[in-house]
Design a protein around this nucleic acid. Structure first.
Lengths: 151, 151
DNA sequence: GTTGATGCAAACGATTTGCAACTGC
DNA sequence: GCAGTTGCAAATCGTTTGCATCAAC
């Protein structure tokens, strides 16, 4: 269960999901997914584009947007809440939650196994079916707290 | 403790917060805040603008944007996560959580008192100070589930 | 070969900004 | 009266779309 094997498993799973959805496994899609998997900083479409451009010089930004949109619908990636105007993405795999700094917009992941095991309220089933429940903590990060104090 | 009194209290609190922050209590700000308080559908800046335009014909859309931005920084309103491109807002008062439908983008509030009483993980204090913790449930609403089934 | 995917360029829409006139304190 | 706020118009920026070409199956 090394990191390498994990990634290979993810990519196999990726191809299967694409085929099941009737989508072609194109070079661009594969690389974009690989890049999202490798990223741990919730990159925007534009950030991914810049990183990928080195490997795929002919890639266009619209393809990144379109592909991320497709992946989001397949639950392969997840569009995350931000305080900026740009949408940000993360791979939809490991269970984690978000801390969002109101001062600088920084987004920090944290894990909370207690919450992950908690049973969701029953009345949710009246609203719809649940894919995933996430906690978003709004606050001020340590850096912003100390800079505000010294202001 | 009628609804009327609640609103009056909210508005008094509002004026106090503005004064404390060195902000003028203008007619526009008062009305925009009142409208957000009255709304229970997470309106966008544009939706608020249309509603307010009836009462304040001279109001401009940029003022609504600017004012909501200001309110957000003061924690008077809260910018909520959506799957649309428009930002949506809600008054920052009653404790609730969000169900977000991946199919139609609908945003439904729900309460979860058990969660509200839960203690947040200790390691959060290493990240920063917490204003509020909210749960975002991603899923598919009942309407979208049945329309997908009949498809 | 067919169908869906990509790249390009142009369009779009939400939000922001500079600036002069105005208004609350 | 002054500093902060508003309204207007123009600019900006992230994202989407139409269409011809191209690649996966």
């Amino acid at each position: 269960m090394t990191a390498l094997n994990d990634d290979q498993l993810q990519l196999q799973r990726f191809e299967q999901i694409c085929k099941d959805a009737g989508l072609k496994v194109t070079h661009q899609r594969l690389e974009i997914y690989r890049e999202v998997l490798a990223a741990h900083d919730h990159p925007s479409a534009e950030a991914l584009y810049k990183r990928l451009k080195k490997r795929l010089p002919s890639l266009s930004l619209d393809t990144v947007y379109r592909t991320l949109g497709t992946f989001d619908q397949l639950n392969l990636v997840h569009r995350v809440e931000t305080l900026e105007s740009q949408a940000r993405y993360e791979a939809f795999n490991s269970r984690h939650h978000h801390f969002l700094c109101k001062g600088c917009g920084k987004l920090v992941d944290f894990t909370w196994q207690y919450f992950d095991a908690v049973q969701l309220p029953e009345h949710l089933s009246n609203i719809g079916t649940v894919d995933q429940a996430n906690v978003v903590v709004h606050g001020t990060c340590a850096a912003c707290v100390s800079s505000a104090r010294s202001r």
